[in-house]
């Protein structure tokens, strides 16, 4: 049985009110909300896919693409903003060719914007799978990304 079916069956009488908990559980299991999952939930709850997509895009917590191997969090808090995080984000978008919330085609990275990561003294800061990189700039981004790309290659060779 599919993950989504299992979750839907757990809710004995799924109603509109249970939509968000259901979506949260699906994301927990799949890591994201797939199209198929959204359509399946819609069929069960008698809601259109556009309505569910509308609700889900209202909240930052939901994502619609599989997460990458590495999640890049870009801090857009006040201190980082003052120190130029807007151009860091721009450079990441350029380099990765994705928008926030998206995943690169090679599945390596996904890009997220966070309001404040709580490391203002390191501004502007990004975190990659929880590893913090302090005082980044549009120029240093490429280098940082490359270290992760190399890591993947090393891991593959190690196998």
């Amino acid at each position: 049985m599919s993950v989504v079916r299992k979750i839907l069956e757990k809710h004995s009488q799924p109603k509109r009110e249970t939509l968000i908990p259901i979506l949260q559980e699906i994301q927990e299991e799949l890591g994201y909300l797939s199209r198929e999952a959204i359509c399946e939930v819609g069929e069960k709850l008698n809601l259109s896919a556009s309505k569910i997509y509308g609700v889900a895009t209202f909240y930052n917590q939901f994502r619609f693409e599989k997460a990458g191997l590495y999640e890049i969090q870009v801090c857009r808090g006040t201190a980082c903003h003052v120190k130029g995080s807007a151009s860091v984000l721009e450079a990441l978008k350029q380099e990765l060719q994705i928008e926030p919330g998206g995943t690169t085609r090679d599945g390596l990275f996904n890009l997220e914007v966070v309001a404040c990561i709580g490391a203002c003294s390191l501004a502007p800061v990004i975190a990659v799978n929880g590893e913090f990189h302090a005082g980044v700039s549009p120029d240093s981004i490429k280098e940082i990304l490359n270290t992760y790309r190399e890591r993947v290659v090393e891991n593959d060779q190690g196998k």
């Binding site: 259109s48 556009s50 309505k51 997509y53 509308g54 895009t57 209202f58 909240y59």
Partner: peptide
């Protein structure tokens, strides 16, 4: 949604 029962469109994002 209410007249045609289709719901092809809705508000998305925030």
């Amino acid at each position: 949604e209410e007249i045609q029962g289709v719901s092809a469109i809705d508000f998305i994002n925030r």
